[in-house]
Simulated scan of single mutants.
Amino acid sequence: MDMIQGHAGREAAITALFRDTFTASEGAEEGQVVAGLAHDLLARTPASDLRVFRAEAAGRVIGAAIFTPLVYPGQAPRVMLLSPMAVAADWQGRGVGQGMLRHALAALRAEGVAVALTYGDPAFYRRVGFVPVSAAEVPPPHVLSAPEGWLGQSLTGAAIPGLSGVPVCAAALDRADVW
């Protein structure tokens, strides 16, 4: 298995991974929503704002994680948002997701990113160092339908700084229905 940063030439495979994984776990409608989100992020987000990490085995994309900036007005810490992330159903439970995230977080840390945030399953993300954050201390771009899924991780070794104001996210994520 290889951990690779980037998505050039692999957009269709990454989008299909999200569609298939979320269809298997959440149903066809959710599979289409997340695949559409991934497609829009890959197609519409400026390359300078996009960090894609993927796991491949035998030429197949078996995992992918997409990070984009989350910019808090007038605040200095560099924050990246992980959304979405998926591991192929037949590769789950083998450490692919954890390995891919460790690789991604190390790369972001080396880039000077101070905080990584995500909105997902607390049980999974806690395994790689994410902790629950409150929307009052670290506001999300939209109202959260499941506030317990708002999670963060400092990449500096210090505590996650308090942030304020409504952050600006990638255009593809600036939709209330994905929050």
Rank of each mutant, 00 (worst) to 15 (best):
residue 1 M to K: 09
residue 3 M to D: 04
residue 3 M to Y: 13
residue 4 I to C: 00
residue 4 I to M: 02
residue 8 A to D: 02
residue 9 G to A: 15
residue 9 G to I: 15
residue 11 E to D: 02
residue 11 E to G: 05
residue 12 A to P: 04
residue 14 I to N: 05
residue 15 T to E: 08
residue 16 A to K: 12
residue 19 R to P: 07
residue 21 T to C: 02
residue 29 E to S: 14
residue 29 E to G: 09
residue 32 Q to L: 08
residue 33 V to D: 06
residue 33 V to L: 10
residue 34 V to A: 07
residue 35 A to F: 01
residue 36 G to M: 06
residue 38 A to W: 08
residue 39 H to T: 00
residue 39 H to P: 03
residue 40 D to S: 15
residue 41 L to Q: 02
residue 42 L to V: 15
residue 47 A to Q: 13
residue 48 S to Q: 08
residue 50 L to Q: 04
residue 51 R to W: 08
residue 51 R to E: 00
residue 51 R to D: 04
residue 52 V to F: 05
residue 53 F to Y: 05
residue 55 A to Y: 01
residue 58 A to H: 13
residue 59 G to N: 09
residue 59 G to Q: 09
residue 61 V to K: 10
residue 62 I to P: 01
residue 62 I to G: 02
residue 63 G to I: 06
residue 63 G to Q: 00
residue 69 P to A: 08
residue 70 L to S: 06
residue 73 P to S: 14
residue 74 G to Q: 09
residue 76 A to M: 08
residue 78 R to P: 06
residue 79 V to K: 12
residue 83 S to C: 12
residue 86 A to V: 06
residue 88 A to M: 04
residue 88 A to E: 00
residue 89 A to W: 11
residue 89 A to Y: 14
residue 94 R to K: 13
residue 96 V to Q: 08
residue 96 V to R: 02
residue 97 G to P: 03
residue 98 Q to W: 06
residue 99 G to L: 12
residue 102 R to Y: 15
residue 107 A to N: 15
residue 115 V to P: 00
residue 116 A to R: 15
residue 118 T to L: 09
residue 119 Y to I: 11
residue 120 G to A: 13
residue 121 D to S: 02
residue 121 D to Q: 03
residue 122 P to F: 13
residue 124 F to C: 08
residue 124 F to W: 09
residue 125 Y to I: 05
residue 126 R to C: 11
residue 127 R to E: 09
residue 128 V to D: 04
residue 128 V to T: 07
residue 129 G to C: 08
residue 129 G to F: 10
residue 130 F to V: 11
residue 131 V to N: 06
residue 136 A to R: 10
residue 136 A to D: 05
residue 136 A to G: 05
residue 137 E to K: 05
residue 137 E to L: 02
residue 138 V to Q: 04
residue 142 H to Q: 03
residue 142 H to A: 01
residue 145 S to L: 12
residue 147 P to E: 10
residue 147 P to M: 12
residue 149 G to W: 14
residue 150 W to V: 06
residue 150 W to K: 09
residue 150 W to P: 03
residue 151 L to Q: 02
residue 152 G to F: 01
residue 153 Q to E: 01
residue 154 S to R: 09
residue 160 I to Y: 07
residue 162 G to F: 14
residue 162 G to H: 14
residue 163 L to V: 10
residue 165 G to C: 10
residue 165 G to Q: 08
residue 166 V to S: 07
residue 172 A to L: 07
residue 172 A to V: 03
residue 176 A to S: 13
residue 176 A to I: 11
residue 177 D to M: 15
